[in-house]
Amino acid sequence: MSARLIAVNVVHEIIRGPTRWIAIDKRPVPGAVVVEELGLVGDKQCDTRYHGGPDKALYAYAEEDADWWSVELGREIPPGLFGENLTTHGLDITSALIGERWRIGGPTTGILVEVRSARTPCGNLSGRMGIPRFHHRFARTGRVGAYLKVLSTGSVRAGNRIVVVYRPDGGKTIGEVSRRA
């Protein structure tokens, strides 16, 4: 089966985190969502020192990794719970190489993105999950998802196909970079 988007998630509510206001409460939205250079139209990042910007325009997380966490924690992990914009299926994000490029959606309306970095989780994730120091545990697994740069704008929707169109020779994977952080 080919890789695909199972959910496109935007901020539902700005909430108070342990130290500041945060936009981690992301939830799936129906239909097509426009993607611009700085991310999804209708989404928000509160602390742009660490989130957002051209190299962190989108955050992608694999359903397979969420399913792993669901078993590990004994609770449901719905799309967007970890604050991701794009929930994928059939794409091994932990093994994605920095610099890898993905085409999401069709060639005329879809987007082209580049894997730029692993997520560096902070205490806000622990607060969201209600588990003290969870962000350290999350990082140690390497199952942290990827920040993406938007190379070509367009729109995306749940069900869109994801194709890896470029994979660099060598380099570090998301999992390797995360476990070293």
Rank of each mutant, 00 (worst) to 15 (best):
V165C: 00
S152A: 08
A139W: 07
V11T: 13
V10H: 10
N160G: 01
V164L: 03
V163S: 12
T108S: 15
Q45M: 00
H136L: 14
A3I: 00
G53N: 03
A181F: 13
F138T: 04
A146T: 05
Y147S: 00
E64S: 03
G123M: 10
R167K: 13
F82W: 11
G99P: 09
A23F: 06
T88V: 03
G90K: 01
P78V: 06
H51E: 00
A146S: 12
I174W: 05
I15W: 13
R167I: 04
S117N: 12
G99S: 08
P168I: 10
I24Q: 01
G52E: 00
G53Q: 02
L112S: 02
E72N: 09
G130C: 06
T173P: 09
P107S: 12
K149N: 01
D47K: 02
V11K: 01
P18L: 13
E76H: 09
E72P: 02
T48I: 11
Y59I: 00
R75A: 06
W102S: 04
F82V: 08
S155Q: 15
P30N: 12
R157G: 03
G175S: 11
E100Q: 15
A181R: 15
P168R: 12
F134L: 04
W102D: 02
V164P: 14
A139K: 12
K26P: 05
A146V: 07
T120K: 14
D65L: 01
I131C: 05
Y61M: 01
H136K: 14
A23P: 05
G175C: 10
I6P: 02
V163C: 00
I93P: 09
P78C: 06
I131Y: 07
V156A: 04
Y166F: 15
